[in-house]
Design a protein around this nucleic acid. Sequence first.
DNA 1: GTGAATGCAAACTCTTTGCATGACT
DNA 2: AGTCATGCAAAGAGTTTGCATTCAC
Lengths: 154, 154
Amino acid sequence: MAETTAHNHDHVAGWAEYAAGRIKAAGHRRSSARDEVLAVIAAQECAITARDISSELARNGSEVGIATVYRALELLESMKLVQRVEVGQGVARFEPSMPDGDHHHHLVCETCEELVPFEDEGLERAIDRLAGKLDLKITGHDIVLHGQCSNCAN
Amino acid sequence: MAETTAHNHDHVAGWAEYAAGRIKAAGHRRSSARDEVLAVIAAQECAITARDISSELARNGSEVGIATVYRALELLESMKLVQRVEVGQGVARFEPSMPDGDHHHHLVCETCEELVPFEDEGLERAIDRLAGKLDLKITGHDIVLHGQCSNCAN
DNA sequence: GTGAATGCAAACTCTTTGCATGACT
DNA sequence: AGTCATGCAAAGAGTTTGCATTCAC
């Protein structure tokens, strides 16, 4: 499992365009504010907060307000174009979600609070098996590991 | 849902006393406010919010303020006497944690938002195996399933 | 008596919403 | 032109903090 981290940009390539298309197709108008938000989300490595997006926009001279960021995220989440990730810091994080259902989870570094994505087939299988055993309908799952990232482990 | 409730109290039996002892041993003073919070936490079935605790206290005629509830929870969490559980509703939930490391996770019903606890050995094993594979130090994990509880499944 | 714990209220953070203005089709 | 989308500011929810008072030791 050495390839746990190196993958993100590939999956996300074209996400902004894809999302813009889906949004248009769903009957929503195209706007530069939304495009800017899409661009920032697409460029990120891992799940980011609304505030992250907003400051990144501000840093680029954009005048998009934070309310618009939240509204864009709300729309994107409702269309399953982003996935909301909460890791217990009291803030919601979001990351692009592609239709191919690329599936990963996160480790939260207890020292620097950074998020490290990982994926594991064994874990997904264990969840599938569990879903069969429980007599509950399971539609999704989130797994959050707590620990130390490679930077902070030393 | 008479089934799911029955087993929890066994695990939690004596938790309030145990926690009170640990708190005392750590050099903190004993107070009736803290005792009342401990009692409410011990009596709960699943992870509850600070507000839940506060209203339960109020219902019993207690005058413990919500700030005290938060401060008690902060202390308890720092001593690992409670575990914080966040399931993406924007609220922190807490549940008693025993030293024997009784370990369960939660399903969040997408319809009624209720929490259903579950445990699964296979899942725990998958996480242990994963911990071996990743070159990250893993100290804990949270798993949240999304789906329908037995009440809402119909 | 001393200092920790409490209660209240104010402050803070994250998120949502109302409303007038501006922009896309 | 008709709406949808935006930006601002205000409102809400959850949580934390400052400070005077109370209470445990």
